Each structure stands twice: as C-alpha cells, then as structure tokens.
Simulated assay, not measured.
Amino acid sequence: MAEVDAVQPNGTPAWIDLGTPDLDRAMQFYGAVFGWEFDVGPEETGRYTMCLLRGREVAALMPNHDPGATEFWWNVYFATDDVAGTVSKAEAADGHVITPPMDVMDKGRMAILSDPVGGQFGLWHGNRHVGARLVNEPNTLLRNDLVTPNPGPAREFYPKVFDFSLDSDGYLGEDDFTFLRRPDGHEIGGILGDPSAPASSWGTLFMVEDADATARRAADAGGVVQPPYDMAYGRIAEIKDPFGTPFTIGAAKTG
C-alpha cells in the first residue's frame, strides 16, 4: 500500500484519467469493477470526476464530447517539476506537442505530448492536486508500459526526457521488454516491442487482489474480458470497458 501526499519525483506516473462518451455508464462500470466512489465535478470544469478509494483520489473520468470519437484510452501523466523545461527536452528528442503547457486552475500545470513513435502521454506538475493519492494497492494504479511496434526510438527518447535508465534483465523471457528506471533506480514502467501492435500506446495496469474475480465483475458489468493468465509476476487479465477502453488488471503471485 502506498499513500501519496506529496509531489512524486520527476518521471513517475503521477496521474491517470479517461475521456468517455457516457460518464454515468463509465461510473457504473468502474464502480462495479474496483469499488470506486465518485465526486462529479461541476459543468464549468467539464464534469471532471474524481474516482475515489477510501476518500482518496486514484484516477479521474470525464465526458468526451467528440461525436466522431471511436477510440478511448486511459491517459498517463508523468510528474515533472518543470513542465516547460520537460516539453523543451521532448521536442529536442523528436517528440511532439499536442497541448502546450497550461495551468489547470490552482490544481497544477500540464501538457500533452507524443513520443517519436506516436505514444501519447501527459506531464503533470502538481500544486493543490499532487496526482493519485493511493497507488500500488488493490484497485489502484500499479504501472504503465508503452507497447509499440517500433521500440528503438522510444528507448532513445524517454531517457533523454526524464533521465531514465534502461534495464533489460530478461525477467520476461523472450519478450522484447525494457524496464525504465528513475535516476534513483525506482522502476516506473517499461517499453514492450510488439511487431503485431497496431499503434504505439501507453497501457495502464491496475492492481487487484484476485484477477479472476475482478475479471468476472468486469464481464458482469458489460466489459469484454480476455481469460486471465499467469505470467512471471502474477496473474493478469486484459479488459475493455463498455466503450472499448483497454486496461489490464494484475494480482501478485502468492506463495
């Protein structure tokens, strides 16, 4: 269990949110799967809705008002103490700016970028909102990994932007996987080279106590669930919510 009450170190996945075509339906689904409660924001903030566990923010949902949108995904925001400076590093490393640095009221400062292979991510400099206040425990964010058919440029990009080190220790067998570590050695996620991936995207994995039970709840709530399976670190399942938003759940190996 990790309770977060201060700004995370640079490069740490600090926040996640999801734009969805039906906010009420999304709250029903994620509430059933993870036991979250919700604090729906006012119209002037676009009904930006905090997802709460034990009264602490773990993620956010918001309406996506684009009638032409057909794909939805969890956005990951990496902590930075200098949004503009990190944007400059990203541009120098062949990244692209989608949303320039901007203040979010008194909550913090953000930007949206894409890496050289098209993986989209955000930056977050917390003020009154430091980001997720519970992580690494059941029904909260555990990790984020970039899946891409072209991992080489991504493995060059992220160390330049966040001073990550790369670690390919072979823990995942033959998979083309590289761990990303902060300068203090803390693992923040990884990059998976997958030639079959249709595009590059950052995935979101939520920790759960029981992958099979959580997968059943997701299916009962209207999600599309791939059968859970065992891997090196535990048991995981890949899920899509009722609008096709992909995410992964994982339960740690016991015994």
Rank of each mutant, 00 (worst) to 15 (best):
E209T: 10
L18F: 12
T178I: 01
A132D: 01
G190V: 01
A111H: 02
A213Q: 11
I188P: 03
D212A: 15
N127I: 09
V58K: 09
D184L: 07
K160I: 02
S88P: 12
Y158V: 00
V135C: 03
F206H: 00
H96F: 13
V224M: 14
M1Q: 09
V40C: 04
D163E: 14
S165W: 01
R25G: 13
D212C: 14
D82A: 09
D22Q: 06
Q8P: 10
A84I: 08
V83I: 08
N10A: 09
E174D: 15
V33N: 00
L172Q: 13
N139C: 11
W73Y: 13
W15I: 04
A154F: 00
I249V: 13
I239F: 05
D115I: 06
A93S: 05
E209A: 12
Y233N: 13
T80A: 06
L141D: 00
V58Q: 08
P100R: 11
F34H: 03
E174F: 08
D17F: 06
D22K: 10
G118I: 08
P116R: 10
P183L: 02
T204M: 05
A199K: 14
M102Y: 14
N75K: 11
P9D: 01
V87P: 11
R133Y: 01
T80S: 06
R47V: 07
L113G: 09
E44I: 15
D5Y: 02
L146N: 04
V130A: 06
R155E: 04
G223A: 08
P227L: 07
S165Q: 07
N127V: 12
L134Q: 09
A6H: 11
G190S: 05
V208P: 04
D184K: 08
P198V: 00
A215C: 04
A93R: 12
Y77T: 05
K240V: 14
G19V: 10
A218I: 03
I16P: 07
S200H: 01
H186L: 12
A32H: 06
H129C: 06
E187R: 15
R217F: 03
R181M: 07
L141N: 00
Y233I: 15
G35C: 00
K240E: 15
D175H: 15
